[in-house]
Simulated scan of single mutants.
Amino acid sequence: MAQFSLDDIRAAADAKYGSTDIALDDKTTVVLRNPLRLSKAERDELAALQDNLDGDSDKDQADVLADAIRLVAKDKKVAEKLIDNIDGDLALLAQVFETYSSGTQAGEA
């Protein structure tokens, strides 16, 4: 029978359900946490934000995407730097969120 330590399990979870990291420069990286690493309240909020992206919402898509990035970011101040650098460019916001979403698909049920 194989025996694993909690550290082994933790390392496997980190490898499988890791974050999406976006480097802003040589010193600053935005860490976007995998949905499975969010609290239940955060997952519920993320799902509500994603529902607003379906096109049936009257909310500004750039605002919704920026809110989603803020929500999943490990460090909110660094997330603000990313959002400031994007400067309201909806295509860039959408690409960041698409990159994040495609990196987390394997972890979602």
Rank of each mutant, 00 (worst) to 15 (best):
residue 50 Q to T: 07
residue 10 R to A: 12
residue 1 M to K: 10
residue 84 D to V: 06
residue 39 S to E: 11
residue 9 I to P: 00
residue 35 P to T: 05
residue 58 D to I: 05
residue 45 E to M: 08
residue 74 K to W: 14
residue 63 D to K: 14
residue 80 E to W: 01
residue 6 L to P: 01
residue 46 L to T: 09
residue 71 L to V: 11
residue 69 I to Q: 02
residue 51 D to T: 07
residue 92 L to E: 13
residue 90 L to S: 09
residue 9 I to N: 00
residue 17 Y to L: 14
residue 55 G to D: 06
residue 72 V to S: 06
residue 86 I to V: 15
residue 9 I to E: 03
residue 64 V to N: 06
residue 83 I to H: 04
residue 75 D to S: 14
residue 33 R to I: 08
residue 48 A to P: 01
residue 105 Q to H: 12
residue 88 G to K: 04
residue 4 F to L: 12
residue 25 D to M: 06
residue 67 D to C: 04
residue 73 A to K: 03
residue 29 T to I: 14
residue 34 N to E: 01
residue 78 V to A: 05
residue 16 K to D: 10
residue 93 L to V: 00
residue 105 Q to G: 09
residue 101 S to E: 05
residue 81 K to R: 12
residue 50 Q to A: 10
residue 71 L to G: 10
residue 37 R to F: 02
residue 10 R to K: 14
residue 8 D to C: 03
residue 70 R to L: 09
residue 103 G to E: 03
residue 19 S to L: 00
residue 27 K to H: 09
residue 27 K to L: 10
residue 79 A to C: 10
residue 91 A to Y: 10
residue 92 L to K: 15
residue 72 V to A: 03
residue 85 N to L: 11
residue 64 V to Y: 04
residue 94 A to Q: 15
residue 91 A to F: 10
residue 68 A to S: 12
residue 83 I to N: 03
residue 93 L to C: 01
residue 60 D to F: 11
residue 46 L to Q: 07
residue 1 M to R: 10
residue 35 P to L: 02
residue 100 Y to C: 00
residue 62 A to H: 11
residue 47 A to R: 13
residue 30 V to F: 03
residue 45 E to W: 00
residue 1 M to I: 07
residue 25 D to S: 07
residue 56 D to M: 04
residue 39 S to V: 08
residue 16 K to C: 05
residue 47 A to N: 10
residue 8 D to S: 10
residue 33 R to L: 14
residue 100 Y to P: 01
residue 2 A to Y: 11
residue 40 K to E: 10
residue 48 A to G: 05
residue 41 A to S: 13
residue 59 K to M: 14
residue 26 D to Y: 00
residue 41 A to I: 06
residue 63 D to T: 09
residue 40 K to N: 03
residue 98 E to R: 08
residue 89 D to R: 07
residue 86 I to Y: 02
residue 52 N to W: 02
residue 108 E to C: 01
residue 73 A to T: 04
residue 100 Y to N: 02
residue 109 A to I: 09
residue 78 V to L: 09
residue 93 L to G: 02
residue 44 D to R: 08
residue 20 T to L: 08
residue 90 L to E: 12
residue 83 I to F: 03
residue 14 D to F: 02
residue 8 D to V: 05
residue 107 G to L: 09
residue 100 Y to D: 00
residue 68 A to V: 03
residue 25 D to A: 04
residue 83 I to R: 05
residue 38 L to W: 05
residue 9 I to K: 05
residue 1 M to S: 13
residue 33 R to E: 12
residue 38 L to N: 06
residue 88 G to S: 03
residue 1 M to A: 12
residue 92 L to R: 15
residue 108 E to T: 08
residue 77 K to W: 12
residue 35 P to Q: 04
residue 92 L to T: 14
residue 10 R to Q: 11
residue 103 G to V: 04
residue 51 D to A: 15
residue 91 A to E: 13
residue 99 T to D: 12
residue 54 D to V: 12
residue 34 N to C: 07
residue 21 D to P: 00
residue 73 A to W: 09
residue 101 S to K: 02
residue 59 K to G: 01
residue 85 N to E: 13
residue 31 V to C: 07
residue 52 N to S: 13
residue 84 D to E: 15
residue 21 D to F: 02
residue 92 L to Y: 02
residue 98 E to M: 09
residue 29 T to E: 07
